[in-house]
Computed example of a mutant assay.
Amino acid sequence: MEKAYKLLAKQQGISNKKAKEIIDRGLVFVGDKKVKIARAELADDTRFRVEDVADVKILYEDDNIVAINKPAQVDSYDIQDAIDGAELLHRLDRDTSGVLLLGRNREFIDDAINEFKNRRVKKEYVAWVEGVIYEEIEIDAPILTIKKGKAFSKIDDTKGKKAYTKVKPLEIQGKKSKVSIEIKTGRTHQIRVHLAHIGHPIVGDEQYGSRTQTKRILLHSAKMAIFNYAFEAAEPKDILRYK
């Protein structure tokens, strides 16, 4: 028996540190099961499969803004570090793909952040969720975020901050539904928490109640509009059609 990251490092010819990193990013599988714990003890003959990560694509850029189509399993801050002179205007969870915006100059960045704070940025997502959704649902439930260790959010009518989400059905496949989601607020894990709150967690979101194992949480930032800019990121294959 050996720790998963050490076995992976030997098989891939990489450092232990790099092996831990790609396990933590959710890119390593044994058969169809994701390896979730880098220090898990596994048999010496365990064979791993490492998923490729799609390239980061620039949707648009000028002197004020850079719009990125972020692949899943890529950290928003890694993208910021890779683009000289750009600063994140918001962030997407590592598993979330789609439109990500960065600013290029201080004046624009400050103005844009103010737009986010004042809920004037239009944000539309697409997701696959557990269960069947037949009609539009509006969710107005305050969210409290606990940031000790791994961030976790929950509905809290007393201490939570206002959060509003609108969900519209797009497609149904078996006991899964594809939905479009509009949010006016931007609380940590807002979409994930609100969908779990109504009994329809996002497929693959085990932290908030999904029992379906997938390569990632099936959530995509499809469209975003700020000032006179509007951006759209094409749906990746896992969002376009469920299995």
Rank of each mutant, 00 (worst) to 15 (best):
G13T: 06
H90S: 11
A234W: 01
I133R: 03
V50F: 01
H90M: 12
E61I: 13
N228F: 08
A19E: 00
N228S: 14
M1Q: 09
G98L: 07
K17N: 01
Y242C: 10
I143P: 06
L27F: 02
G186P: 11
A233S: 08
L27C: 03
K223N: 12
I109W: 00
V132W: 08
A4P: 01
K148L: 10
V50P: 01
L27M: 09
F108K: 00
E87L: 06
K162P: 03
E135G: 13
S15W: 00
E138T: 14
E124K: 13
D44C: 01
I198V: 14
N16R: 00
V74K: 07
N118H: 14
V179Y: 07
Y208S: 02
F29Q: 04
Q12K: 14
K175E: 15
E232Y: 05
K178D: 12
G209A: 11
S180G: 12
G98E: 07
R106P: 00
D32Q: 14
A54R: 13
A9Y: 00
V30T: 13
I226C: 03
K159N: 15
V126E: 11
K10A: 05
L240F: 09
E124S: 05
K150G: 05
K148G: 10
T185W: 12
V203I: 15
I172K: 15
A86M: 11
V121R: 02
E182W: 10
I181W: 08
I79W: 11
K117A: 04
A196I: 03
N228A: 10
D45K: 07
Y134L: 13
S180E: 13
K166R: 14
H90P: 13
A82Y: 01
L219F: 09
H189T: 02
D156I: 06
N105C: 01
V167M: 11
A82K: 08
A151M: 06
A82D: 08
I37G: 04
V28T: 02
F227P: 03
T165W: 11
K243W: 06
A38H: 04
I23H: 00
I183C: 09
L170P: 07
A141M: 10
I181Q: 09
G103R: 00
K3T: 04
I181T: 07
V99I: 10
I172L: 14
P169H: 12
G13C: 09
I65H: 03
Y242I: 15
T158P: 01
D157K: 15
H200Q: 04
D205Q: 04
G199P: 04
E87I: 02
E135R: 15
V50Y: 01
V203Y: 08
A127Y: 05
K168N: 10
K70N: 13
E235A: 04
I37V: 15
A67H: 10
